[in-house]
Computed example of a mutant assay.
Amino acid sequence: MSTVITDRVHCLPNDIYVVTTAAGDVMVNSPPESLKFLLAHGVNPPRYVILPLDALPGSEPSSRGFVYRGINYASVEFLIYANFFGQQQKITLITPTIAQAQRLHALLSETINGPTATEEWPNPWLRRECAAVAFFPPLGRAPTIDDMTSIVALEAGGGDLGQVQITCDGSNFIFTENGAEIARIPTTISAVAHPLTVAPPRPLPRQALTLQFIGGSDGFDPTGITTCFLAYFGNRQPLLFDAAAYINVRLAHLGLSPRQIDLVIISHLHEDHIAGLPELILTGGKRVQLVTAPTIYRSLLRVLSEMLNLTPATVAELFDFYPLEPGQPLELHGYQFIATYAVHSVPTIAVKVNGVGYSGDMRYDEEWLEHLHQTGYLSAERLNELRRFADGAGL
């Protein structure tokens, strides 16, 4: 039978569907910034989300796993936060296969809590700092992916929602309620995904140092673009700091091509900072040269491995990596990079390059940092390092 879209189905851009059922709203597909699209259309974040089938190898250029045409369709991190912190409930993520469920769990564990293995952390104090930032009073600790989500597979009975049953015949997700079919939603991703908002093009007078902001917002704001900016030094090609979702479209709107990007600096692996990275790597038309800390790079390989359904070794062949070890200056392409670990819930670097200082998502609060010092989370040396990070930066 063909697709059946009924009055139970709310159709949103980018192949997002929200099906109203007796068990609650069920969202099908989760491209980047899904939460922004939901909020912009007045739809509360659903408690259930169905991820698409993996793209078959070779079915379309550069696509495999949870990635279609460079767009990450496993972008559920902020839907998890919206449910857990906003509505005090766990979200259920439903994948067609058990293997996908396992990969999604590993992916989200890495992006939300950082590396699982103790030896993957560069030092014990950084792990303690991240746990302090992520501390959630009702739990008495940082929440884990299992606190916030249930990840189930249709092929293991994960579509049984009581009165509602969800199955997949390969072409459609089939919804039945009390034995009667209420909707058939296509499994095919057909539309070319586009962002909700783009930065307006403006004349860019080039100075000795010029910053061009693509975005400076967060994952919960439907009117804003997540943090991402370009830094021009003289007449050189720009550096890209973090990669917002739909980065190729965003660059094109500013009259730029991904081929013009010199280096890409990644501060950390939260969705709102790396959602556009698969696009650059797979469809940007130029080999990405990536700068970040080694511990973040290793996490990135594992995240992209689960996202693309490739081995970490294969993923490592897709782009060039230049290690920026905090505390050890890096000279590259005529730039000098200096980094330190920022205070955030996962390993994050704050970076200085040729007079520009970028803090990543550092929580900078003097009173709170002093509290962390007094309670033993920050040494006096570390506290002073954070306070003086911006010294020498002109901007």
Rank of each mutant, 00 (worst) to 15 (best):
residue 97 T to E: 07
residue 182 I to V: 15
residue 82 A to T: 08
residue 64 R to N: 13
residue 169 D to P: 02
residue 367 E to D: 11
residue 97 T to G: 04
residue 38 L to A: 12
residue 312 P to S: 05
residue 275 A to D: 12
residue 254 L to G: 10
residue 234 G to K: 00
residue 214 I to Y: 00
residue 120 E to V: 03
residue 130 C to A: 14
residue 27 M to S: 09
residue 256 L to C: 07
residue 146 D to R: 13
residue 316 A to F: 04
residue 349 I to H: 01
residue 3 T to Y: 06
residue 221 D to V: 05
residue 173 F to V: 12
residue 229 F to E: 06
residue 41 H to Q: 13
residue 149 T to S: 09
residue 352 K to Q: 15
residue 15 D to M: 09
residue 353 V to L: 01
residue 93 L to R: 04
residue 108 L to R: 02
residue 242 D to I: 01
residue 269 L to S: 00
residue 157 G to R: 08
residue 53 L to P: 00
residue 114 G to K: 11
residue 214 I to M: 00
residue 179 G to M: 12
residue 41 H to T: 15
residue 218 D to F: 10
residue 171 S to K: 03
residue 388 R to A: 06
residue 339 A to E: 02
residue 88 Q to Y: 09
residue 26 V to P: 11
residue 172 N to H: 15
residue 315 V to C: 02
residue 230 L to W: 00
residue 395 L to I: 14
residue 70 G to K: 08
residue 231 A to V: 04
residue 253 H to R: 13
residue 364 Y to D: 15
residue 317 E to T: 13
residue 307 M to G: 02
residue 14 N to A: 08
residue 198 V to Q: 12
residue 231 A to N: 01
residue 185 I to D: 02
residue 356 V to F: 14
residue 84 F to C: 09
residue 120 E to A: 13
residue 275 A to R: 04
residue 115 P to T: 09
residue 222 P to R: 07
residue 1 M to V: 09
residue 250 R to C: 06
residue 214 I to F: 00
residue 317 E to F: 01
residue 3 T to V: 15
residue 13 P to Q: 12
residue 63 S to N: 07
residue 74 A to C: 11
residue 67 V to T: 12
residue 167 T to N: 10
residue 382 R to Y: 04
residue 312 P to F: 02
residue 96 P to Q: 08
residue 109 S to R: 08
residue 9 V to S: 09
residue 286 K to D: 04
residue 258 P to M: 12
residue 377 Y to P: 02
residue 365 D to V: 11
residue 348 T to G: 02
residue 109 S to Q: 11
residue 209 L to V: 14
residue 6 T to W: 14
residue 238 P to G: 08
residue 125 W to R: 15
residue 387 R to A: 06
residue 268 H to M: 03
residue 136 F to M: 06
residue 93 L to H: 05
residue 119 E to S: 14
residue 224 G to K: 14
residue 285 G to K: 10
residue 42 G to H: 10
residue 217 S to D: 06
residue 275 A to N: 10
residue 97 T to N: 05
residue 237 Q to T: 07
residue 82 A to D: 14
residue 173 F to R: 07
residue 279 E to C: 07
residue 47 R to C: 05
residue 266 I to A: 01
residue 368 W to I: 03
residue 44 N to H: 11
residue 350 A to V: 06
residue 29 N to H: 12
residue 39 L to E: 08
residue 133 V to F: 13
residue 245 A to W: 00
residue 184 R to L: 11
residue 341 Y to N: 04
residue 245 A to D: 02
residue 255 G to Y: 09
residue 330 L to H: 03
residue 386 L to W: 11
residue 273 H to A: 09
residue 169 D to Y: 11
residue 162 G to I: 13
residue 93 L to W: 03
